[in-house]
Simulated scan of single mutants.
Amino acid sequence: MINPSEVKDRAAGAIMGAFIGDALAVGPHWYYDLTELRRDYGDWIDEYTDPKPGRYHDGLKAGQLSQAGFILELMLHSLVENKGYDEKDFCRRMDEELFPLLDGTPISGPGNYTSQSIRDAWRKRVQQNLPWGQTGGHADTTEAIERTLAIAVRYAFQPDKLAAAITQNAILTQEDETVVSMTVAFGAVLGLVVEGNRLDADISAKLMKRVKSGALPFHAVTNDDLQPPQKGDPDPPRAGRFASPDALLSPSYMAAAAFDSDIRIDPPWKVSIVYGMPCAIYHQLPAAYYLSALFHNDFESAVLHAVNGGGQNQARAILTATLTGAQVGLSGIPKRFLDGLNNADELTQLAEKLASDIEPI
């Protein structure tokens, strides 16, 4: 039986987890030399930190958000004020509240860094005056996930709406079909976790049931448990645009690895070395799934191991912390992470407003 107060707690935990993960990595963001990272921040980062002079986000202070957090907040305001996803309203906010702060260079804008996909969208929208819908670029990052995670929370109990809204929003800045499919898959996983499901080896089977029902827009020809189709089976109708469901299968493999006593990534922050430190979505998602499964009831360990792995630790921390925050709930996030977060009270109120709009069914 669904407990609305628990759903609200998980939903708010997912949103606040993302903000916390973003802010924790502002200081030590994008160190690919782990010796240099340890020299600047010590053997273990366990709190908000200032960026070092001359590095990414220089000028920000401990506990402040990067541009990813800024855009996530824009998305939350849009979702709350419109009682759901409204593409026109979100695009207006990008035009009016973000783009005037950018100049097309990397070291600019909120957070003192602008990602490739947002720079591409800015050039097409501002310099070339193209309409939204013709603004997507080729970046293969988790940039769209970092804002659409709020859509996943809002539509956790409506997977068809979740998938449609995330797809529509993701293609505004990223047009690669594989990247978009992995973005939608992450949202579908997060939605299940907000519902109350654990991120474990069974989660992909639950996702595939939604593919079979037509709720998730992935094509699949296999039968249950990935058994081969039988002679005479009809070609299943496409539920949507994505040719393969493989992005929905990955989370279970990562979770199985986390729970397998014969597999150990020790210490767990070295997940960044196993799956890769770079920005690309295919490096980031496996690490986030692994850490969120391993530390399903320990928010602090999950997010700190994500941060201490170096490389693109900000994306890794956002993704890990939103999945883990959804598992432990806002009530399970240590108070010190909220106390040190800039504008935490306002962000928490916004997260709780979104959580109140969820329609459990």
Results as ranks from 00 to 15, higher is better:
E359V: 14
I15R: 10
E146Q: 15
L354Y: 04
E87A: 10
V179K: 04
S356F: 00
K353A: 06
G17L: 06
I273S: 08
D246R: 14
A170S: 15
K8E: 13
P237V: 04
N342H: 11
A150Y: 02
M16F: 05
T142C: 14
L249W: 13
A11R: 05
I358L: 03
E146I: 05
F242K: 13
L294P: 11
T105G: 08
I171G: 02
E36N: 02
Q116C: 03
Q64R: 10
I145L: 15
D233R: 13
V303G: 06
D225S: 10
T167R: 15
L338N: 06
A243F: 13
T173K: 06
R336E: 08
P53A: 05
L190G: 02
R316Y: 02
L24W: 04
G59K: 10
R55T: 15
S108M: 05
Q168T: 03
D120S: 11
A12F: 04
K124S: 05
C91H: 04
A288H: 13
K52E: 12
D58S: 09
F19R: 09
P234I: 07
D103L: 05
V126G: 11
K270S: 07
F218Q: 08
R238V: 01
N129S: 13
E300D: 14
V274F: 13
P110K: 12
G340Y: 03
V26C: 12
S331V: 01
Q67H: 12
I107V: 14
Q158T: 08
A258R: 14
A163W: 13
Q284N: 01
T348P: 03
V274K: 12
M94Y: 04
Y275L: 00
D233I: 06
T141W: 11
L37S: 00
K209M: 12
G136N: 11
A164Y: 10
P100I: 06
A258I: 07
D9R: 10
A315Y: 01
E87H: 09
D33F: 03
A23L: 01
G214M: 09
A317P: 09
L72G: 00
K212H: 08
K61P: 07
N308T: 10
K61Y: 05
I263P: 10
A185N: 14
E96Y: 04
E73G: 04
